[in-house]
Design a protein around this nucleic acid. Structure first.
Lengths: 239, 239
DNA sequence: TTTTGTGACGTATGATCACAATTTGCCTAG
DNA sequence: CTAGGCAAATTGTGATCATACGTCACAAAA
């Protein structure tokens, strides 16, 4: 009867609610590695920290728990999940699979404007690289990949990709703190070339290389070392 | 208008929290197609329905919104998302990719006991097929696939796969209601054979066939028909 | 007849309260 | 000095209250 007038509300609604703000802050903190693995969280503590009542925090934390960004233990406690070697390998193989899939599906929508935007991000990454700005590098890398995948207007995999980034965030910090350097080899140029050429094969290869050359190598090394020297169940590290 | 089963999955175990129960019921209702697309939901309405205060409902609804199972509109309204042809294709190709990935990663952990358990589920599916029990068929199909993927103890893709099922649930009901029959061709036998043979190639093929022979065909047909009689040569979709 | 302003009503939201469960610290007994 | 248990503090959970915002209906003016 009246369902045809779809009325696309293009108006961008401000995420003005407190709960949304808390959610964003917490999520961003986890994804950029501001919270270490195995950090225990309390709703009241976070509420104090963010100067609001427990209610918005509670809901934000729940949302993050469904994304596997926060682990809710049976005994009513929650914490940032720990990382194991097996889980790490599993997550990275999944990441390669999903991101390659999302990337290839972008090709029909690639345009000069799109590529131009990506190049702009890549330029900023080069700047962050020379100033050794690790945080900026992480954020920009996410921005770059997100911009690629979101080029597909019907994109369905983005929430899952973000969920993976979220699960990797805390561990990334752990590696950095452990003193392990990881070399950032810029595969973005290859991604851009594959996009320009509309070459799905080359694109998948470039995406996989970019992911595997990132924290994957040093992360794997870190977990192997830890497994080796942890004959007694030792606390991984303490901030 | 919804709860017709007493949560068959989580029968007596874990009386846990009210919020968890509400979450499970809502989630199950959506996944099995008890809620039609574009159904608008109100927190208070659901609270009345489940005989509890708005608080647990609010949190459950938020969790579901992060899984794209419920769409939160800017104007403080929420509803079950609508389905479009483009979104449908996107979701299904993603589903094939992720489920194939998860299935292949199961092979190192396959054992006779595992296969036996899967055969048991498959037998029950055959029974549901002859009695034309659509709901049972849907639930058992999910159980089967879940059992396959969860064979990998370090499984990381399951939450994402469930999220996809969740997004497909409401639309599945829409197809059934429209009178379109969909033929269920039993590809589970082929999946089982590939598992027994530890054949990754055959397994991926079987998984893809199982998914594409399910509601995919009739769902696609339904959306094509709807698009045809809706607007002959208008702009396909808004952004 | 159409458009616009104003009011009432309903709803989400966040704070606060009361309660239950769990953890932590301390004290006592062995 | 260690193990066990009791008590207080801490924390999550659900209900309720106050408030802000959106929606709808009705009326008045163009």
């Amino acid at each position: 009867m009246d369902e045809q007038a779809e009325m696309p509300d293009i108006a961008v609604r401000s995420p003005s609610t407190e709960q949304e703000a808390v959610f964003r802050r917490l999520r961003s903190a986890i994804m950029t590695g501001n919270l270490a693995p195995e950090t225990t969280l309390t709703i009241r503590g976070l509420a104090d920290l963010m100067a609001c009542s427990p209610t918005p925090v509670r809901e934000a934390v729940r949302r993050l728990s469904t994304e596997s960004a926060i682990e809710v233990l049976g005994n009513r406690r929650m914490r940032v999940p720990a990382m194991t070697l097996a889980k790490f390998e599993e997550i990275f193989s999944l990441r390669v699979t999903i991101e390659s899939h999302a990337a290839v599906r972008v090709l029909p929508y690639v345009s000069d404007v799109i590529i131009e935007g990506l190049e702009r991000i890549d330029t900023r990454m080069d700047e962050a690289l020379v100033t050794d700005d690790q945080l900026g590098l992480t954020v920009l890398n996410h921005d770059f990949h997100r911009a690629v995948y979101m080029t597909n207007p019907h994109q369905a995999a983005m929430p899952m990709i973000e969920s993976i980034w979220l699960q990797l965030g805390p561990f990334q910090r752990q590696i950095l703190q452990s003193g392990l350097e990881f070399y950032v080899i810029d595969r973005h140029k290859e991604i851009l070339r594959a996009l320009r050429d509309r070459d799905p094969g080359a694109l998948a290869v470039a995406i996989e290389a970019d992911i595997r050359d990132g924290i994957y190598r040093s992360g794997r090394q870190y977990l192997l070392d830890r497994a080796k020297l942890s004959s007694p169940s030792q606390v991984p590290y303490g901030p």
